[in-house]
């Protein structure tokens, strides 16, 4: 008898707990508590809870007063203003016009093709990080997309065979082996970077077929610096035309542009290296 009662009690408790869960989540059309008065109601009941939680959250988030070593902050801040002007007054209008002339499916094709040609960078860096399954995925993608995907214009590997791309660059490879980011550097035109990732960009340049390097000509597409810049510019214009408004939207969240962009760049890199 006791046993049955116990089971009933347990089931009852369980039903309660699962019901409770549904309440906050399921009430779809619950209007927001957007006036300050309503907060009073809410906060009186939850302030104790909050105090307990504060410490836990404080451990979870990075110390907000942590000082970042930023010896180039003056230059970086200036370069951020320069890059910002380039994006707003040159890249965006050009990308808009480009997007107006060239239909979107073709622009997506160009984006796919450029990614496809850059396959050696991802392939090599996945191998360097011991991610052999990813490298073999990359190889398979390259073979399928270069042939059935018409020189990489389409991405049948992802669409029909569900093989995702695994973006890795040499900056990530260095990070994977414990190399710290070093101080932050804002590169002209290319945007936020740091010492480690700048070295990474140079190393990847040797591998990438889209960047010419003196004395290595075997599989490089551009023959000289001007052609490299041309292809890189096309890449940026094409990418911007597919994501118009994205930069402005991110920018709106900034109180002070340079530290904001630096912070999100470094956070993003940490998470990319962790994967």
């Amino acid at each position: 008898m006791k046993f049955i009662l116990l089971v009933c009690a347990l089931l009852f408790l369980q039903a309660c707990s699962s019901k409770e869960v549904t309440t906050p989540l399921i009430t779809e059309d619950k209007t927001s508590s957007s006036s300050p008065e309503e907060y009073t109601k809410e906060c009186n009941s939850c302030d104790e809870d909050k105090n307990e939680l504060t410490d836990e959250f404080d451990n979870e988030f990075e110390d907000e007063e942590k000082n970042i070593i930023d010896p180039l902050s003056g230059y970086n801040s200036m370069m951020t203003t320069f890059n910002d002007a380039v994006i707003i007054y040159a890249l965006n209008p050009v990308a808009e016009a480009y997007g107006y002339i060239i239909p979107e499916p073709l622009r997506i094709g160009v984006s796919n093709a450029i990614k496809n040609i850059n396959f050696p960078v991802r392939f090599v860096n996945n191998i360097l990080q011991g991610k052999f399954q990813n490298s073999s995925d990359e190889l398979e993608r390259f073979i399928i997309n270069s042939t059935i995907g018409i020189a990489g214009l389409m991405d049948p590997a992802a669409k029909y065979k569900n093989i995702p791309a695994h973006r890795e660059d040499f900056g990530q490879t260095l990070g994977y082996y414990g190399v710290g980011p070093g101080f932050h550097i804002v590169l002209p035109f290319l945007g936020p970077s740091n010492v480690r990732d700048s070295i990474g960009i140079i190393a990847d340049g040797y591998v990438s077929p889209l960047i010419n390097v003196k004395d290595i000509v075997s599989y490089k597409i551009p023959d000289n610096l001007a052609q490299t810049i041309g292809i890189t510019t096309l890449y940026f214009i094409n990418r911007t035309s597919l994501n118009l408004g994205e930069y402005e939207s991110i920018k709106k969240d900034a109180i002070d542009l340079y530290p904001f962009l630096r912070d999100i760049y470094e956070q993003k890199r940490v998470s990319e290296i962790d994967e």
Binding site: E65, P259, D263, K268, V270
Partner: peptide
């Protein structure tokens, strides 16, 4: 977290700098 960037962490840093 959007592409690895925590929204709250980003505001936390910005507010503290401000």
């Amino acid at each position: 977290r959007l592409s690895g960037v925590s929204i709250v962490q980003t505001y936390r840093k910005q507010f503290s700098d401000f």
